[in-house]
């Protein structure tokens, strides 16, 4: 598929999806908060926020802002989380305790009330017929749950998860079909010395989705991971989208605290212009 055709398809999709977009800003209760891997991460389930008919008006890659009511005045900001899935169990988020806010969110119990707004931001592109490589760095796995579940041709998906904490801390059940087909690959980075091996693994998989294959690479994870993926994709001629994890205060484009540098050298909000960007639209050091 040529670049022109791709742009038309993207544009049409964006237009139709925008018309059905339905953001809410509401109080929700926790349904379940399940520790994974002994509490290294948590699978947080909330009441369904009712984003339009059937809850289908969110798109994988989008995120929500979540702030427990119990925070009062003490912690100022809500915290951003990728939407992992919305299903009969409610809105699913994966929480990695990594600071004051996420530590407390990990401690929420069923019945606790949070304030939540979303769905926010841009989403990963879906090209059913394109060989698509999903690259997750740690908790960056979350958006690929919904992505894989919705993909019309999952046989075209391959997932690589790089992790530093125990694999048991990741919700892998939703990826069972991929695992069963031998298209789920995990890499445990125990020390910095493992990094080269992980990068080599990424390089091999990206090569399969490069220029010759006209593949697609979608990545979510920490900044250094995303910049490495981008570099490897550029080298392989692979088209690539990355989901940025910048710190943000508002999630709606107002605070300008989460900006990334775009290809024209301008600062753009990663909450509204992203979090998912085509790497070609970002500066080398986004």
């Amino acid at each position: 598929m040529g670049a022109g055709v791709r742009l038309i398809v993207r544009g049409a999709k964006t237009l139709s999806e925008r018309t059905m977009e339905h953001k809410t800003c509401t109080s929700l209760r926790i349904v379940e908060n399940r520790p994974l891997g002994g509490g290294a991460q948590y699978l947080l389930s909330l009441e369904n926020p009712g984003w339009g008919a059937g809850g289908k008006t969110w798109r994988p890659g989008q995120f929500v802002m979540l702030r427990p009511v119990s925070w009062g005045l003490e912690l100022t900001w809500a915290r951003p989380f990728s939407i992992a899935q919305v299903d009969e169990g409610g809105l699913r988020l994966v929480i990695r305790p990594a600071g004051r806010g996420t530590d407390r969110i990990a401690g929420l119990a069923p019945g606790d009330e949070v304030f939540l707004w979303g769905p926010l931001g841009t989403s990963f592109v879906t090209e059913p017929e394109t060989p698509t490589l999903l690259l997750a760095g740690g908790v960056g796995l979350a958006p690929f749950w919904g992505y894989a579940a919705r993909h019309p041709a999952p046989a075209n998906l391959r997932l690589v998860l790089g992790h530093t904490i125990d694999l048991a801390a990741f919700p892998l059940d939703p990826f069972a079909p991929l695992a069963g087909a031998g298209r789920l690959h995990t890499f445990h980075q125990r020390t910095m010395a493992d990094l080269d091996a992980f990068i080599a693994l990424l390089e091999r998989h990206i090569a399969d989705h490069g220029r010759a294959a006209n593949g697609l690479v979608l990545a979510c994870g920490p900044g250094p991971f995303l910049r490495t993926v981008r570099r490897l994709c550029d080298a392989a001629g692979a088209r690539c989208q990355v989901s940025l994890e910048n710190r943000m205060a508002c999630g709606i484009g107002a605070c300008l605290g989460c900006v990334a540098r775009d290809a024209a050298g301008r600062n753009v909000q990663s909450c509204t212009r992203g979090p998912v960007f085509w790497t070609r639209d970002l500066a080398e050091e986004f």
Binding site: E74, T76, R100, G101, L256, G257, N267
Partner: peptide, 20 residues
């Protein structure tokens, strides 16, 4: 104006700092 380099915001007890 393109503003300041990142990071631009920090959460503090009952508040925040910004240098947008």
């Amino acid at each position: 104006r393109e503003g300041n380099p990142m990071p631009r915001i920090a959460e503090t007890p009952c508040g925040m700092l910004n240098a947008i």
